[in-house]
Amino acid sequence: MNEHKLIVPRTARYYTIGSPSARVKDLWVVCHGYGQLARYFLRHFQGLDNGQTLVVAPEALSRFYLDGFSGRVGATWMTKEDRLSEIEDQAGYLNQLLQEHLKSLPKDVRVTILGFSQGGATVSRWIATEKPPVHRLILWAASFPEDINFTTSQAAFAEIPVALVYGTQDEFITSEALERKKQLMQQLGIEPAVYTFDGGHTIHSETLQKVGQEL
């Protein structure tokens, strides 16, 4: 048995809050977590809609039924199957999406990348491998991926302020996992600003506003 690969066009779906214009000062690209859909995830960012901010929520390319063979649908950025190809496809998708929106925005627009849960690993790999023009990175309830090449990726994160945000009742964030996450960041020379809130595995609107103002 021989494995073969063929690159084919894909229709990628994304949602936005706000409209491109000369008034836009901030562009946010926000990547959802495992099993979510972009249109529902984007609702958490309505508070950023101030007439000077454009929020773009790409949806992962692989969808599946959350329970059985029908009903609610979620999306995932990748699985362990053919993961290197999926990582490469993600980066190409996010690069194209970002560049498409930068064309219609002022040249001095500030770019903020937020990855929630699985989306955090996705955007971290994207920045590490492709070095897109990013001014701020927010990892929310996210695990920093251990498969990043630490030797070649330090430069990608060197000038980017990074925020690490999580709920104190998040069932997926243990003290051991948090410590490991911080150690991985230190290997890349990242000293993140850490924000916590009283809550679980979700986006907390007041904390989001605070991070957006302070980072």
Rank of each mutant, 00 (worst) to 15 (best):
F45K: 02
G92C: 05
L42M: 05
T53K: 03
V109M: 09
R43F: 09
S19V: 04
Q99E: 12
G74C: 09
R63L: 08
V24G: 02
M78V: 07
R72F: 12
E81A: 14
F64N: 10
S104K: 13
H44K: 11
G47W: 05
E59Q: 14
Q36Y: 04
Y93H: 10
L42E: 03
V55I: 12
S85M: 10
A91W: 01
R39G: 04
F69L: 12
T112G: 01
A91S: 14
T112C: 09
A91F: 00
R72E: 15
P20Q: 03
T76P: 01
L54H: 02
A57S: 11
R39C: 11
Y65A: 08
R63I: 08
P58T: 04
D49S: 14
I87W: 04
D26N: 15
M78W: 14
L66K: 15
S21Q: 04
P20R: 05
G68R: 05
E86R: 12
L105V: 04
G35Q: 04
E100F: 14
A91V: 12
V55K: 01
D82R: 12
Q46F: 06
D26Y: 12
L42D: 02
V55P: 00
T79Y: 11
L54C: 06
L54R: 03
F64A: 08
D108F: 07
N50L: 04
N95E: 06
E86D: 14
